[in-house]
C-alpha cells in the first residue's frame, strides 16, 4: 500500500543556518520561526520575514507567553503575536505549556509549572484569550524539565490531557522533551505517547540534548545543541503509526551548528521514521479491515 499521507519535515529558522536553509528548500518542507524575535522588529525585518514566508511554508513558534500559568497572559504580547500572524500568515502558531514569569519577574526560561487544577484552569483561560486576540488558538507544546514541579497534583500526562480537554487547541509534541522527561522521571515514553490524543497532535519537534548532573543525579537536558538521538526517531515512528492525519515535524537546533548536510540527513532520517510509522499504520488498518 502506498503512503498517501503528506507529512512534512522542516527546520527551525536561525540566522546562522540561513544559507543552508535557503539553499536546500527542496529538502526542507517547512520553516519554523521564533515569533518573539520579531515582536519588536522594525519594518524592514518584518518585511524580510514576509519574503521568507513567500519562499516556503512558515510557522511561528512563541517562547514568552507563559500559557501554563494561573496568571493571565500579557495582553501586549498577545497583540504582538496577533500582528505578526496577520502580517506573515503562518500555517499555525505554537506556544509552550510553561510559565515564564511570576510576581512581575521574568524568569528567562521555560519553566514547568505545578501541575494543579489552578494551572489547568489558567492554561485553558489563557488559551481562550490567545484564541480571541490572535484569531486562532496556538498549538501547545509539552516542555522538558529537570525537576518534577513541586506542589503538583497531577502527573504530566494527565495534566496535559486535562488542558487539552478544556481547550480546543492542537498539540505540538516535542519528542525530545517527552524522551528527556521519561528518562529523568522513569516512565514509559511509548505509553505516554499512546495516552495522548493522537488526533490532536498536529506537529512534532525533534532535538537533542546532553547528560548533566542535577540534584546528585544524572539527568537528560534538552539543550538543542546535539544530534537527535535514536529514541526520538523511534517515538516519531510510533507517532506516525498513531496519527491518521499529516504531521509537521520540525528539527530544532539552537547552537553548535554542524554542516547543513548533517541537519539535512537528520531530516531525511525523520522522513524515514515517518514512513516506517505510516507503513505500520497501514498494515494495522489493513489487518483490522481483513
Amino acid at each position: 500500500m502506498k503512503n498517501t499521507i503528506r507529512d512534512r519535515v522542516g527546520l527551525g529558522w536561525r540566522r546562522e543556518l540561513a544559507v543552508g536553509i535557503l539553499s536546500h528548500l527542496d529538502r526542507i518542507d517547512v520553516v519554523e520561526v521564533i515569533a518573539d524575535d520579531f515582536f519588536d522588529a522594525g519594518r524592514d525585518e518584518r518585511r524580510a520575514l514576509r519574503t521568507l514566508a513567500a519562499q516556503t511554508t512558515l510557522v511561528l513558534h512563541g517562547v514568552s507567553l507563559g500559557l501554563a500559568s494561573s496568571v493571565p497572559v500579557d495582553t501586549k504580547l498577545l497583540e504582538k503575536t496577533a500582528k505578526l500572524c496577520e502580517e506573515v500568515e503562518p500555517e499555525y502558531w505554537s506556544e509552550h505549556l510553561a510559565f515564564v514569569r511570576g510576581g512581575g519577574v521574568e524568569i528567562g526560561h521555560l519553566t514547568a509549572p505545578p501541575r494543579t487544577d489552578a494551572t489547568i484552569e489558567g492554561a485553558a483561560s489563557n488559551l481562550e484569550r490567545a484564541r480571541a486576540v490572535v484569531g486562532s488558538a496556538p498549538l501547545v507544546e509539552n516542555i522538558a524539565t529537570l525537576i518534577d514541579p513541586p506542589g503538583s497534583d497531577y502527573d504530566e500526562i494527565d495534566w496535559i490531557n486535562s488542558i487539552m480537554d478544556s481547550a480546543p487547541c492542537g498539540l505540538l509534541l516535542d519528542l525530545h522533551n517527552l524522551h528527556a522527561n521519561a528518562t529523568n522521571f522513569g516512565y514509559d515514553e511509548m505509553e505516554f505517547l499512546k495516552r495522548l490524543p493522537a488526533e490532536r497532535i498536529v506537529a512534532a519537534h525533534l532535538a537533542g540534548g546532553k547528560w548533566v548532573e542535577a540534584l546528585g543525579e544524572r539527568r537528560l537536558l534538552d539543550d538543542h545543541l546535539h544530534d537527535v538521538p535514536d529514541a526520538v526517531y523511534r517515538l516519531l515512528t510510533e507517532l506516525a503509526a498513531l496519527a491518521l492525519h499529516p504531521l509537521t515535524v520540525i528539527l530544532e537546533r539552537d547552537g553548535a551548528y554542524p554542516p547543513i548536510e548533517v541537519l539535512l540527513s537528520q531530516l531525511d532520517r525523520a522522513r524515514e521514521a515517518l514512513a516506517e510509522g505510516r507503513l505500520r499504520q497501514f498494515e494495522r488498518i489493513e489487518k483490522e479491515a481483513a
Binding site: 540561513a18 544559507v19 524592514d44 524580510a48 521568507l52
Partner: peptide, 16 residues
C-alpha cells in the same frame, strides 16, 4: 526591497 530583505535574512553571515 527584495534585495534589502535578502541582506536582512543573511545578516547572520556578517559575524559568521
Amino acid at each position: 526591497e527584495t534585495l534589502a530583505d535578502v541582506t536582512n535574512l543573511y545578516s547572520g553571515l556578517r559575524t559568521r
